[in-house]
């Protein structure tokens, strides 16, 4: 048995009366030859790595490997100390945790690619801040990671989560949908709302290009992570009010696939257009590809 569309997922849940978590575990037990306990152990280890990346990143204040960032999380944390966000503590945490993880990634720190390294801050920032703010028990924490993974898996059947394949909609967009669905699960919403939250998140991010400056996972990637995390939260807010995506989830993914295919290769991780070819980016790029630059980087 495998589940390749959101429609199949919904039907299976309604026909078998199983929960989304049960289905996620069963699918994974089938395809991986691991039993439920082994899977739980891996999920636990993954969540721990997510948390460690966040807390390392929160207290770090040093340049990233490509030398284009590394101080933004610190700025945000310091700012909040004297100016608490008008949107409350959860909002603060989501933004800081996403920045912390993405900066850690660009510093060659240890992160979880979820689904990719470039989008590594989105799912963890949502999950970990919800765990902390709403006192979620361990069992449910693990389950929520599997729900996120199941949503990513269904999307990945049609669109490979890679900027080179379909632009950033496939990386940060997919991560945002995963986070939205997992959050819906955490707050006990039913499968319709989980799927709808994922669909709304993707729908609003269709066409997002991948044009990293100098080819590094820094600009725009680092700041994009907190944006797409909050984006997931908005998707949940709408979905939980039973606002529906007029276009069903599976068709939204079809649209993402088509949009990705139509997108110029120059905007798919090649750094040949968009932000990567702005005046400032070109000046920054000039110092690249020289021996001096390499030796500086490896100082």
């Amino acid at each position: 048995m495998d589940i390749k569309t959101f429609q199949e997922l919904k039907q299976t849940i309604k026909q078998t009366n199983k929960s989304i978590v049960q289905i996620a575990f069963e699918l994974e037990e089938n395809s991986s030859n691991l039993n439920k306990n082994e899977l739980k152990k891996i999920a636990k280890k993954t969540l721990k790595a997510m948390k460690e990346a966040i807390y390392t990143g929160l207290s770090a204040k040093s340049e990233t490997n490509g030398k284009m960032g590394g101080f933004d999380c610190n700025k945000q944390v310091e700012f909040y100390k004297n100016h608490p966000s008008v949107f409350g503590r959860l909002f603060e945490k989501i933004i800081c945790y996403a920045l912390a993880t993405s900066e850690e990634n660009a510093r060659m720190g240890r992160i979880v690619a979820c689904p990719t390294a470039g989008a590594c801050g989105i799912v963890p920032s949502i999950l970990i801040s919800c765990f902390e703010e709403f006192d979620i028990d361990k069992e449910k924490q693990i389950n929520s990671l599997l729900v996120a993974g199941l949503i990513g898996k269904i999307i990945a059947y049609k669109v490979k989560p890679a900027g080179a394949t379909a632009g950033c909609q496939a990386e940060c967009g997919t991560a945002s949908a995963m986070a939205a669905g997992a959050m819906a699960y955490l707050f006990d919403y039913d499968i319709d709302i989980i799927i709808n939250a994922a669909a709304l998140a993707i729908k609003n991010i269709l066409g997002l290009t991948c044009d990293p400056v100098r080819g590094f996972v820094e600009v725009p990637c680092i700041k994009r992570n907190p944006f797409l995390a909050i984006h997931a939260a908005v998707a949940l807010e709408l979905a939980s009010a039973k606002i529906e995506s007029v276009i069903p989830a599976d068709e939204v993914i079809d649209a993402m696939e088509q949009t990705g295919a139509l997108m110029s290769a120059d905007l798919k991780e090649n750094s040949k257009a968009g932000l990567a070819k702005t005046k400032t980016a070109i000046i920054m790029d000039k110092s690249c590809f020289t021996k001096k630059y390499y030796s500086e980087l490896n100082d």
Binding site: T46, N105, G109, A113, T116, A117, G152, K153, A156
Partner: peptide, 24 residues
């Protein structure tokens, strides 16, 4: 070969910044 697992999506735990350029 088109099989994608949940674990594929939520992994690997790796040192950044790029799955193709660093982990690869």
């Amino acid at each position: 070969m088109n099989e994608i697992s949940i674990l594929d999506i939520i992994s690997p735990i790796m040192v950044g910044p790029s799955s193709s350029h660093t982990a690869g």
